[in-house]
Nucleic acid binder design. Structure first.
Lengths: 174, 174
DNA sequence: GAATATAGTCTGCGTAACAGCATATATTTC
DNA sequence: GAAATATATGCTGTTACGCAGACTATATTC
């Protein structure tokens, strides 16, 4: 890439996106990173019911305050029917509660209990440490760069794919 | 959060890896990107049996020439028992063949048929285009940066986690 | 050549995701 | 304001998928 757009007619320039990469390598690298991270992540949050997803749900509830379960599920890409029993687990563990949503009596709002907030706070430092471990091979500048690019990209995708990842719902509902 | 780690003693410095990130956000962003990409990826390779994984297997066979199924599975993080029927599908589609490994009669080497090579070649431009689409929001410099960082990280993880992703096997076997 | 290790396959189990239906409430239409 | 439609959640049953474990064939070690 970079080599693209040197000619006048554009479409074929798509063929050589990343020098030194075989087409499909990007997904392979991303998968590798994500899987490697999951390992550490899961260890960091082993106290949490439903492991990583439990943590992500609790984190989302606390930091994004989604208006209802749908918004929560949309943010994390979790199907509603799946969400039901995942939340059940967190409720049973006393970490969150389902309260009737103030504006819509069909909906339930998920709120963290005091115990849930405490656990989240405790686990957040472990998760942050896990992220550090993952990024250990990169120096501070590179880590910041990667974080910035990854964030920028995911926001863009997020905007571009309302269907697959309708976090938009979340964004104006939350 | 964010309020923590303001005190002097050092080990807690792990708490604040990525400014503006909530702990766990890295995984969320990566997951979002990967899922967003999978959508396009799957469309690009819809001709391929087993979709993305079928493509990745064929690509690995052609470009890395793994010595046996284990090496192939290790590279992609696919369990041996799963690999068996995934390969079956590719064989049935006439894209690869199992040939006895020259050095070890227990093992089978997976080789692409002519038809498989052709299909791969055809799909690679579509996959490259899908990668481009994914990266569309980034300019050339950013894309190259991201690719470099992602590649560097995945290699490191790869080295650090022989168990979870024993691609090492692949690297000196392939 | 006996014992142990490895490559691949097959079988059965458990989990987890999804489609479809049911219920309660909102919203729109007339 | 009554009927029709849409939405939020929960429940049920089916399906698929990955993985543990057993099995066969071949290598390697002693």
């Amino acid at each position: 890439m970079g080599a693209m757009a040197t000619t006048a007619h554009a479409p074929l320039s798509l063929d050589k996106p990343l020098p030194g990469f075989i087409p499909g390598d990007l997904a392979w690298h991303l998968g590798m990173i994500l899987r490697g991270h999951q390992t550490h992540f899961a260890q960091a949050v082993e106290e949490m019911p439903c492991s990583v997803r439990g943590y992500q749900m609790l984190s989302t509830v606390v930091h994004h305050d989604p208006a209802n379960q749908q918004a929560l599920g949309a943010h994390l890409g979790i199907d509603r029917t799946v969400l039901t029993y995942l939340i059940d687990d967190l409720v049973e563990a006393g970490l969150v509660e389902r309260v009737p949503a103030p504006t819509d009596r069909r909906a339930r709002k998920i709120v963290a209990t005091e115990q849930g907030t405490e656990l989240l706070t405790r686990l957040e430092s472990r998760v942050a440490a896990a992220e550090q471990t993952l990024l250990a091979e990169l120096d501070a500048a590179e880590s910041a760069q990667l974080a910035g690019l990854v964030s920028k990209l995911s926001m863009a995708i997020h905007r571009a794919q309302p269907g697959a990842n309708p976090c938009e719902a979340m964004d104006h509902l939350g």
